[in-house]
């Protein structure tokens, strides 16, 4: 069984007339780096909330279809049970840190689970070192930059050692350089520890190169779902206006003009540059 599996998932917020996501059936394998993208309001955040039980436990509303996460049926297990398997990092770094020091924040989840003190200490130090915030451990969250705050948020879910980390536009409050650094941290977690990553992101230019699998949503439904390069190269992806990487677009245009390029589709400017160099040399 895949680590996340949904079947005909349809969800309507309480008081809403139309469902925010409709007939979503996806499969995410263990260890994948998945990108979810799509126009604003298409239901990306709503889908993320289904992965850790915020929907239906926190939001209530009407849930139809099925969601399995790490083998657990989401509506039959409480949020804190699911929290051991799935960590959720939110958009606004400020509103997910509650403690008065970085290390207390990273420890918060483990304290809630009643993990013994020396184990908390070990895991907190481990998570802070991995995310590069160990030197900030005694600082208060509001003395930190947005990028640092977002790393604290990542460390605080990482400390709970989940198999899956879901990040909902974690860098939309950050500058491009800060964003790039966050993506590198996430990528490392994926490669080194095999943590399944689900990243919601608009800026495909920066992130497509990390992803094995991409899901494009539109208007509450899954529009495209598959291997990153082929999905981004498709006509549908370009038409929905998700801002496919410039390198991919350039590749498509050059291909049309019959430039003799390799058949692997580039996702980042580095890959594109290497490809062009190859062509120029061969001439």
């Amino acid at each position: 069984m895949a680590i996340i599996e949904t079947e005909n998932l349809t969800y309507t917020y309480p008081g809403a007339t139309n469902p925010s996501i409709r007939n979503v059936s996806i499969k995410i394998e263990k260890g994948e780096f998945v990108l979810i993208t799509g126009p604003s309001g298409c239901g990306k955040t709503t889908l993320c909330r289904c992965f850790n039980g915020l929907i239906p436990h926190f939001y209530q509303g009407k849930l139809e279809g099925e969601v399995f996460v790490a083998g657990l049926k989401v509506d039959e297990h409480s949020i804190h049970e699911l929290a051991k398997h799935v960590g959720l990092v939110f958009q606004n770094p400020e509103n997910q840190l509650f403690a008065l020091s970085v290390e207390k924040d990273v420890a918060f989840g483990l304290e809630n689970l009643g993990v013994p003190r020396d184990e908390i200490r070990r895991r907190v130090d481990w998570a802070m070192k991995l995310t590069g915030i160990y030197h900030l451990k005694d600082r208060a969250p509001n003395e930190l930059s947005g990028g640092q705050q977002q790393r604290v948020a990542i460390a605080s879910v990482l400390a709970m050692k989940p198999e899956i980390i879901v990040l909902d536009e974690p860098t939309s409050f950050l500058d491009p350089l800060g964003a790039e650094n966050i993506f590198k941290v996430i990528y490392e977690l994926n490669r080194k520890f095999g943590i399944t990553i689900i990243l919601v992101e608009h800026r495909l230019d920066l992130t497509a190169k990390y992803a094995d699998h991409i899901i494009i949503m539109d208007n509450g439904e899954i529009l495209l779902d598959g291997e990153t390069r082929s999905v981004l190269n498709s006509e549908k992806a370009r038409l929905v206006g998700v801002g496919i990487p410039k390198a991919t677009r350039l590749y498509q245009i050059l291909k049309k003009d019959r430039v003799n390029l390799r058949s692997t589709i580039p996702l980042s400017s580095d890959e594109m540059a290497a490809m062009l160099e190859e062509v120029l040399k061969s001439k």
Partner: peptide, 25 residues
């Protein structure tokens, strides 16, 4: 803000056990 905080707290296992531990004593 308070709604977002509540969401984040829930996601980090708020109220998982009565016997909560603490990093410090």
């Amino acid at each position: 803000r308070s709604l977002e905080l509540a969401e984040a707290m829930e996601s980090r296992a708020w109220g998982a056990t009565k016997n909560r531990t603490n990093l410090y004593v």
